[in-house]
Amino acid sequence: MSNEIETDKEKKVTRKSSPPIKVYCLPEEKLRIEAQAERAGMSAARYLREVGQGYQIKGVVDFEQVRELARINGDLGRLGGLLKLWLTDDVRTAQFGQSTILAVLSKIEATQEEMGKVMTKVVMPRSES
Rank of each mutant, 00 (worst) to 15 (best):
L105T: 01
K9T: 03
G116F: 14
T111M: 13
E38L: 15
K121Q: 13
P19K: 02
A44T: 11
L102S: 03
G54M: 07
L76A: 06
R39A: 11
P27M: 02
V13E: 03
S106F: 08
W86D: 04
A37F: 13
K9V: 02
Q112K: 15
T100Q: 08
I101M: 02
L26C: 02
A40F: 15
E34D: 15
G54C: 08
L48H: 10
W86Y: 15
D90A: 14
A94W: 09
E10K: 13
L105M: 09
M42C: 04
L82D: 04
D90I: 12
V60T: 11
Q53R: 15
G97N: 02
D8V: 08
D8A: 03
R39K: 13
P125L: 00
L69Q: 08
E34P: 07
W86K: 04
N73V: 00
I57G: 05
V122D: 01
L48D: 05
P27A: 04
S106G: 11
V61A: 06
K58C: 02
L105V: 04
D89R: 13
G97H: 03
Q65C: 08
L79R: 00
I33P: 06
T14H: 09
M124L: 08
K22I: 01
D89P: 04
V104W: 13
S17Q: 00
S99V: 01
E38R: 15
S43P: 08
K121R: 15
V51W: 10
Y55T: 02
